[in-house]
């Protein structure tokens, strides 16, 4: 997985690896929030609105996973990884924000 980085001499500070793991941790945090959202959606007799909100949460997690995966690929295949694109950062933040909107819908159910 790190063949590209090794080919150009490993960064002694392991910066790309640490950044890759940070993306993984963040994806895991998003997964925990999504699981809590699903629990809230299915709790006490699911209604149409709560099932929809739960499905949107799953889709948001998949979107976040996609962003993280493309970034991880960029980090592991290039020896000098390019800077994170603001578009990716904004997309990741919008996933978190939309998750919070779904949470509001579920809490007010």
């Amino acid at each position: 997985m790190t063949a590209g980085a090794e080919g150009a001499g490993r960064d002694p500070g392991l910066q790309p690896e640490r950044t890759r793991l940070a993306w993984r941790r963040t994806t895991l945090s998003a997964a925990v929030a999504t699981v809590l959202a699903l629990k809230a959606a299915l709790h006490g007799g699911p209604s149409a609105a709560s099932v929809l909100a739960g499905a949107v949460c799953c889709a948001l997690w998949l979107a976040f996973l996609g962003i993280a995966h493309s970034r991880v690929r960029a980090l592991t295949t290039t020896p000098r990884p390019p800077t994170l694109a603001p578009r990716q950062a904004t997309a990741a933040v919008l996933c978190a924000g939309a998750l919070a909107v779904c949470a509001v819908v579920l809490v007010l159910q």
Partner: peptide
């Protein structure tokens, strides 16, 4: 971002 997700998870909790 993880802090933000933890706060959102806390809201659910």
């Amino acid at each position: 971002l993880r802090t933000a997700l933890a706060l959102i998870g806390g809201g659910f909790a």
